[in-house]
């Protein structure tokens, strides 16, 4: 193998026989589109059911205090946020199209999106816990005030004890695992991006 033409010939000798036929590719593309539509519908159904649930709780139990109503709404907002994080909605929002940019721009965009995603996921998760605690606290107030004080204290202690435990133990663990996964990808993307940047500077 002494010259590059031999290598070129070798390259074109590579047999490409068992690629899927065009029909199979189109069918797969259509099924992807259907799946994406189903996901949007699924999320809309979850959000609608949540809205119906809030209305039901507020009308059926007719809480007297404004704090109770506010508590339910805040807790539900927190749950909706959790649903959004659990689903891949955020990823869809940050997804970059591979058809519009050259590789250099695509890599830079992916690095930016991954950093934003890591930031948003961590912040939204913290906001979820804060809102959930606030919502629960407000919701319980109306019922706690009608209890004898030792019971009321006990209910608040158990509720906030559990949320506190989650905040101290589970939140940092989950945040770290999200960041670790994304940071590893960012590191790789930056390494590949530098293959193009460094040589540009030399030119």
């Amino acid at each position: 193998m002494n010259n590059f033409n031999d290598i070129k010939q070798l390259w074109h000798k590579q047999e490409v026989t068992d690629l899927p036929n065009v029909k199979a590719v189109i069918e797969k593309a259509i099924s992807f589109r259907k799946k994406a539509r189903f996901n949007i519908i699924k999320h809309n159904v979850i959000l609608t059911l949540t809205a119906i649930y809030i209305t039901f709780v507020l009308f059926y139990y007719k809480p007297e205090f404004f704090t109770t109503k506010l508590g339910v709404i805040i807790a539900v907002i927190a749950i909706v946020m959790a649903v959004i994080i659990q689903s891949n909605m955020l990823q869809g929002l940050f997804k970059s199209s591979s058809s519009e940019e050259n590789s250099h721009q695509y890599l830079q965009k992916m690095i930016r999106y991954k950093s934003q995603m890591s930031f948003f996921q961590t912040k939204i998760m913290k906001a979820y816990f804060i809102l959930l605690s606030l919502g629960m606290g407000l919701y319980l107030y109306e019922y706690a005030i009608r209890m004898q004080w030792p019971y009321a204290v006990l209910v608040y202690l158990v509720t906030f004890g559990w949320i506190g435990l989650a905040w101290v133990k589970f939140v940092p663990k989950q945040a770290a695992s999200i960041s670790k996964g994304i940071n590893e990808v960012i590191e790789q993307l930056e390494r590949v991006n530098n293959q193009l940047v460094e040589k540009d500077a030399v030119q």
Binding site: M1, N2, F4, I7, E101, N102, H104, L196, K199, Q203
Partner: peptide
Amino acid sequence: EIIGISEGNVRVKIHRIKEKILKKFQQHE
């Protein structure tokens, strides 16, 4: 246009890569 670097840079890179691959073949032989 595909990679997003200058044409000159592509030329330089291709030259270096060709050398690298030929060298690998020669070492293997």
